[in-house]
Structures are given as structure tokens and as C-alpha cells.
Design a protein around this nucleic acid. Structure first.
Length: 419
RNA sequence: GGAAAGGUGGCUGAGCGGUCGAAAGCAGCACACUGCUAAUGUGCUGAGCUCGUAAGGGCUCCGCGGGUUCGAAUCCCGCCCUUUCCGCCA
């Protein structure tokens, strides 16, 4: 949600900015009209309400015929209020509905572009793994070493599900632990979050009403989380946080569920794109003036996590058209996957400025006592499914075994996976 | 799932259908007093929307949503949440 004051003040600027995201600038013209109408109706209602209050107040002290007259008189205003109320409610709803559809304008330094094709590589770190043999992909490795069973998952769940087996399960836990250790050392508060959220929380995080297709819904009107960003964003909803306690940083672990509705034929092989996976996510609530710095900080932690595992990666600048609705700027980390012979997205890090905070009503109080929306940011610490792929494919050896990154050795009772 | 109690401002906690945005206490802030700390006194201390250049008005908010009424924190209905007991269960 944007600041309506800003829209009133400089509609043209916002139109241009959201157009860079591929949003329809006409939304702004529309919201300006709706806002104007809303305020007109509102002030009419409030005038009537004010009259009603004034008349009602006197009634208590009157008696006899005077009282009867006063009640009848007040009744006129009461009827007026009842008449105007539905209209005011309607225009308020109309206003909110459209406000929820307006995306957060990208920062000025975000590059132009319509889709991921225009994303640019910011920098590349680490040498691409070289093999004296033709590297297998994680599906072949998983079958050979009895680590992944996609076929049987199909029997019980359908496509885009998998069983993890044997050492890969231990590796999953070790990775979660590894990320948590790094983040708790940085004073992030570790969290395990709910994975079912009500509609309000999903809307607040910016994943609804757009994105309805992407989210699983239950018969109790609860939604399965696609990332623990969603519960973490809502954690402080409707709160006013003392500015001196910011930033508040959380590391959330959860399973993530995605319908992958729009991606039918895409990445159908293996576990890269699945309906369910586990992830450790970073989430930060911070002062508005610090959010750009915080963004770089979160990315630096992502890099620390990937490079600590000895994996080659690149940092990608996401172009305006490829940003999600809440983000004003986004970086992806793409990790090298030899089985695919390309870098693939394993991490994503977004600055959402006050977009989620406004929707979720999360504010801070500064030292002068002023209250204002704070900024939120999120970033992947480790998307475990994809990191498993990267470790398997990069660590494979000629004899068919997989060597495990050294940093994980202390939490595992094996240094390689072999049969 | 069944039964009961309850949800009021940062916290504790009053609240009769009208003068309640809401007593009181605590915490916080400011000032005064005390040579310091403490204590004491006085005052201040919620948020949102809206009109206005401003000063300053108006409206809304006592879990959420409806209803009754000239008027609802207070009455009625529905829902949510919390606590306790029972049942079930990891």
C-alpha cells in the first residue's frame, strides 16, 4: 500500500514509476478520483454525524414535550446518518481495494526492463566447477545414490513432489542448522513460524489479492505459506515499535508451499521447482533511512552462506519489470548448477520499504514521539531444496560419490555420500 | 468437540444506556523542590481519518462484524481470541 498523500501530491511521478513495473498507470488516475469521491462522501457523513451527536447530547437533560421534540429532531439526523453510512462504507472499500492493487514503485537505481530477460549480472564470485567427466544432474545422482524419490511421490501426491532419503535428509537438517548458526551469530532471532495464515496476513504481506493463483487455500479459509516471509511480516502487525529497538531481525524456518500455477512445462525435471520445500528466511524491520543499507547487509549474509559452502554464484540485479509488487529493489543470488550447466536462482533479497508495513499497520515511534510506518526487508538465507541440488551437482566426483562442503562436516557423520 | 469465565489506553484495572477517549494506580515525560541518589508536589502523556495555509475544528476507535436506540464500552446476535475443566491427541 502506498501513501495516499504521496499519490495526491505527485500522481505523475508515481504513474511513471509503476509503469516501469508493468503496472497500469491508469490505476493512479482512478484512485485519485475514488479518493476525491470518498472524501466528499465522508465529510457529508461526518457533518450529519456531528449534528446527530450535538442533538443527542441535549436529550438527557430535557423532560416532557421538550424531550419528545428533541428526540424527534435528532431522529432526522439519525436517519440521515443511516442513509449516508452505506455509501461512505462503499467508497472506502472501493478505495482500499484499488490501493491494494497499486505496486510499490521501484527505486531510481533499479534498471529498466520488462522481464527477467533484462536482469543484469552484478558480479560473479567463485570458479565454475570443472569436471573431467560429464557431470550428472541431481535427478540422476539422486537415483543412483538413493537420495531422491520423485516417482513414488507421484503416487501419493502428484507431480512436483519428492521424497528425500538417506544422507540427503541429514544434509537438509545440517543446512538449516548451518544457516541458523550464521544468523543467530548476527543476532537474528530464530523462529519457526505457522504455515497456515489467514487472509488478512497474506494480504498484508502483499501476496493477495494479486497472487491468488499461486497460493493453496484450505477449507477453513487459511492459506498455506509460500515463504516464512509472510508470517514474519505479520508478526508485528498493528504494533508501534520504539525506534530505538530497530532493526528487529528474524530468521524463520518453515516449509513453503507453492501452487506453481503459471509454470506448467517449466522446470519439470527434479526438485528445483516443487510444490513444497523447506527454507530459512531472513526478515528485517528497520528505520526508513536505513533500509537501503539493510538490503546490502542481507545480501552480504546470503553471500556468506553460499560462499561458505564453497559454491560458485553470481549476484543478479532484478530489473523493474521483474520485481514483485511489494519490492522497490531486489537482488537474486544464482548458484552454479553443473547438471543444468547454468546459474539458477537460489536466493532472493527484497527491500519492500513501507509497502508491507502500511498494509500490516506496523509503525515505529521516533525520538521525537512521531509515529510512522517502518521498512521491511526479506531475503533467503537458504532454500534447502535448491541448495541440495547445488551441493549434489557441484560436489559430484568421478566415482559417482558426492563430497560434502567442509563447513558441514562437523554436523554430519559423513564427509561424502557414496554407495 | 463439550462446558465455564473473560477480552477496556504502554501495563494493572474501574465503568450506571446519555456529561466516557474512558476513573484510579503504575510506568513515561516536563517543571518545581531537595547540595547528589531517592522521595515529594504540579502538569502532561493513545491512534486513525478528515476540513483548514495555519491557529484550530469535526468524525471514528473500549477483540472483530452486525443489530436495537435520538444516543452503546455498557443491551441483543454472530464470529475470533485467551484462560480453566472435560474429551481427544503429537
Amino acid at each position: 500500500m502506498l501513501d495516499i498523500e504521496l499519490i495526491r501530491k505527485e500522481p505523475e511521478g508515481i504513474k511513471k514509476a509503476i509503469a516501469r513495473k508493468g503496472a497500469d498507470p491508469a490505476l493512479i488516475d482512478e484512485v485519485v478520483l475514488i479518493d476525491r469521491n470518498r472524501r466528499r462522501v465522508l465529510s457529508e457523513l461526518e457533518r450529519a454525524q456531528s449534528e446527530l451527536n450535538r442533538h443527542s447530547k441535549d436529550i438527557a437533560n430535557l423532560h416532557g414535550q421538550q424531550k419528545i421534540d428533541a428526540i424527534n429532531n435528532a431522529g432526522i439526523w439519525s436517519a440521515k446518518v443511516k442513509e449516508l453510512k452505506p455509501e461512505a462504507d462503499r467508497s472506502q472499500r472501493e478505495f482500499v481495494d484499488i490501493m491494494l492493487l497499486i505496486p510499490n514503485p521501484p527505486l531510481a537505481d533499479v534498471i529498466d526492463g520488462a522481464s527477467d530477460k533484462e536482469n543484469t549480472v552484478n558480479r560473479t564470485v567463485g570458479e565454475i566447477s570443472k569436471f573431467s567427466f560429464k557431470p550428472l544432474d541431481h535427478v540422476e545422482l539422486g537415483e543412483k545414490l538413493d537420495l531422491i524419490d520423485i516417482e513414488r511421490a507421484g503416487k501419493i501426491s502428484g507431480s512436483r513432489f519428492y521424497f528425500l532419503k538417506n544422507e540427503l535428509v541429514q544434509l537438509e537438517f545440517a543446512l538449516a542448522q548451518y544457516a541458523m548458526e550464521i544468523l543467530t551469530a548476527e543476532k537474528f532471532v530464530p523462529m519457526i513460524t505457522p504455515v497456515l495464515l489467514n487472509r488478512e496476513a497474506m494480504t498484508g504481506a502483499g501476496y493477495l489479492p494479486a497472487g491468488e493463483d499461486e497460493i493453496y487455500k484450505t477449507q477453513d479459509d487459511l492459506y498455506l505459506v509460500g515463504t516464512s516471509e509472510q508470517p514474519l511480516a505479520g508478526y508485528h502487525s498493528n504494533e508501534i515499535i520504539d525506534g530505538k529497538n530497530l532493526p528487529l531481525r528474524y530468521a524463520g524456518f518453515s516449509s513453503c508451499f507453492r501452487r506453481e500455477a503459471g509454470s506448467h512445462g517449466k522446470d519439470v525435471r527434479g526438485i528445483l521447482r516443487a510444490h513444497q520445500f523447506d527454507k530459512v528466511e531472513m526478515f528485517s524491520f528497520c528505520l526508513p533511512e536505513n533500509s537501503e543499507k539493510e538490503h546490502e547487509y542481507l545480501v552480504s549474509l546470503e553471500e556468506k552462506i553460499v560462499s561458505g559452502l564453497g559454491l560458485p554464484y553470481q549476484i543478479v540485479n532484478i530489473c523493474a519489470g521483474d520485481l514483485g509488487s511489494p519490492a522497490v529493489k531486489k537482488y537474486d543470488v544464482e548458484t552454479w548448477m553443473p547438471g543444468q550447466d547454468q546459474y539458477r536462482e537460489t536466493h532472493s533479497c527484497s527491500n519492500c520499504t513501507d509497502f508491507q508495513a502500511r498494509r500490516l499497520n506496523i509503525r515505529y515511534r521516533d525520538k521525537d514521539g512521531k509515529v510512522a510506518p517502518l521498512h521491511t526487508l526479506n531475503g533467503t538465507a537458504i532454500a534447502i531444496g535448491r541448495m541440495l541440488i547445488a551441493i549434489m551437482e557441484n560436489g559430484q566426483q568421478k566415482d559417482g560419490s558426492i563430497k560434502i562442503p567442509e563447513i558441514l562436516h562437523k554436523s554430519l557423520n559423513f564427509k561424502e555420500i557414496k554407495r
